[in-house]
Amino acid sequence: MKKVRIHINEDLCKGCGICISLCPNKVFAKSEEISSKGVFLPVIIHGDKCIACRICEEHCPDLAIFIEAQDVEK
Protein backbone atom coordinates (compact mmCIF):
# COMPACT_ATOMS: atom_id res chain seq x y z
CA MET A 1 0.00 0.00 0.00
CA LYS A 2 1.17 3.49 -0.73
CA LYS A 3 0.23 6.74 0.90
CA VAL A 4 0.26 9.30 -1.90
CA ARG A 5 0.31 13.08 -1.89
CA ILE A 6 -0.04 15.04 -5.11
CA HIS A 7 1.54 18.48 -5.13
CA ILE A 8 0.45 21.05 -7.70
CA ASN A 9 2.24 24.39 -7.82
CA GLU A 10 -0.36 26.91 -8.93
CA ASP A 11 2.25 29.57 -9.63
CA LEU A 12 4.22 27.38 -12.04
CA CYS A 13 1.37 25.54 -13.79
CA LYS A 14 0.47 26.96 -17.20
CA GLY A 15 -2.60 24.76 -17.62
CA CYS A 16 -1.37 22.80 -20.65
CA GLY A 17 -3.44 19.76 -19.61
CA ILE A 18 -0.75 17.12 -20.22
CA CYS A 19 -1.17 15.64 -16.71
CA ILE A 20 -4.94 15.44 -17.13
CA SER A 21 -4.64 13.61 -20.43
CA LEU A 22 -1.73 11.26 -19.63
CA CYS A 23 -2.84 10.02 -16.20
CA PRO A 24 -3.85 6.37 -16.68
CA ASN A 25 -6.38 6.57 -13.84
CA LYS A 26 -8.05 9.87 -14.69
CA VAL A 27 -7.07 11.40 -11.36
CA PHE A 28 -7.31 14.97 -12.68
CA ALA A 29 -9.90 17.13 -14.39
CA LYS A 30 -9.62 20.59 -15.86
CA SER A 31 -10.82 23.30 -13.50
CA GLU A 32 -13.99 25.04 -14.63
CA GLU A 33 -12.77 28.35 -13.34
CA ILE A 34 -9.85 30.37 -14.53
CA SER A 35 -7.18 31.05 -11.88
CA SER A 36 -5.89 34.49 -10.88
CA LYS A 37 -2.93 33.74 -13.21
CA GLY A 38 -5.28 33.16 -16.14
CA VAL A 39 -4.87 29.40 -16.18
CA PHE A 40 -7.31 26.48 -16.11
CA LEU A 41 -5.52 24.46 -13.44
CA PRO A 42 -5.82 20.69 -13.05
CA VAL A 43 -7.96 19.69 -10.08
CA ILE A 44 -7.69 16.37 -8.28
CA ILE A 45 -11.00 14.55 -8.65
CA HIS A 46 -9.95 10.95 -7.88
CA GLY A 47 -6.95 11.32 -5.56
CA ASP A 48 -7.57 7.83 -4.15
CA LYS A 49 -6.96 6.29 -7.59
CA CYS A 50 -3.39 7.61 -7.86
CA ILE A 51 -0.89 4.73 -8.01
CA ALA A 52 2.16 7.04 -7.88
CA CYS A 53 3.31 6.04 -11.37
CA ARG A 54 4.60 9.62 -11.78
CA ILE A 55 3.65 9.87 -15.47
CA CYS A 56 2.14 13.31 -14.79
CA GLU A 57 5.24 14.47 -12.94
CA GLU A 58 7.72 13.30 -15.57
CA HIS A 59 5.79 14.88 -18.45
CA CYS A 60 5.11 18.22 -16.81
CA PRO A 61 7.03 20.86 -18.83
CA ASP A 62 6.90 23.28 -15.91
CA LEU A 63 7.91 20.98 -13.02
CA ALA A 64 4.65 22.14 -11.49
CA ILE A 65 3.43 18.76 -10.26
CA PHE A 66 5.08 16.05 -8.19
CA ILE A 67 4.10 12.99 -6.24
CA GLU A 68 5.14 12.08 -2.75
CA ALA A 69 4.62 8.42 -1.99
CA GLN A 70 5.29 6.45 1.16
CA ASP A 71 4.93 2.73 1.68
CA VAL A 72 2.56 2.02 4.55
CA GLU A 73 1.38 -1.20 6.22
CA LYS A 74 -2.07 -2.35 5.18
Binding site: L12, G15, C16, I18, P61, D62, L63
Partner: peptide, 20 residues
Protein backbone atom coordinates in the same frame (compact mmCIF):
# COMPACT_ATOMS: atom_id res chain seq x y z
CA UNK B 1 11.70 28.49 -11.45
CA UNK B 2 9.17 29.56 -14.04
CA UNK B 3 9.95 28.06 -17.45
CA UNK B 4 10.21 30.59 -20.28
CA UNK B 5 8.36 28.36 -22.76
CA UNK B 6 4.76 28.35 -24.01
CA UNK B 7 2.22 26.15 -22.19
CA UNK B 8 2.76 22.47 -23.05
CA UNK B 9 6.08 23.00 -24.87
CA UNK B 10 8.35 19.94 -24.90
CA UNK B 11 11.44 21.92 -23.90
CA UNK B 12 10.43 21.82 -20.23
CA UNK B 13 10.09 18.04 -20.34
CA UNK B 14 13.65 17.79 -21.71
CA UNK B 15 14.87 20.15 -18.96
CA UNK B 16 13.29 18.00 -16.26
CA UNK B 17 14.80 14.83 -17.76
CA UNK B 18 18.29 16.37 -17.64
CA UNK B 19 17.89 17.41 -14.00
CA UNK B 20 16.68 13.91 -13.18
Amino acid sequence: YKQPHCPGCGNGIVAQCMLR
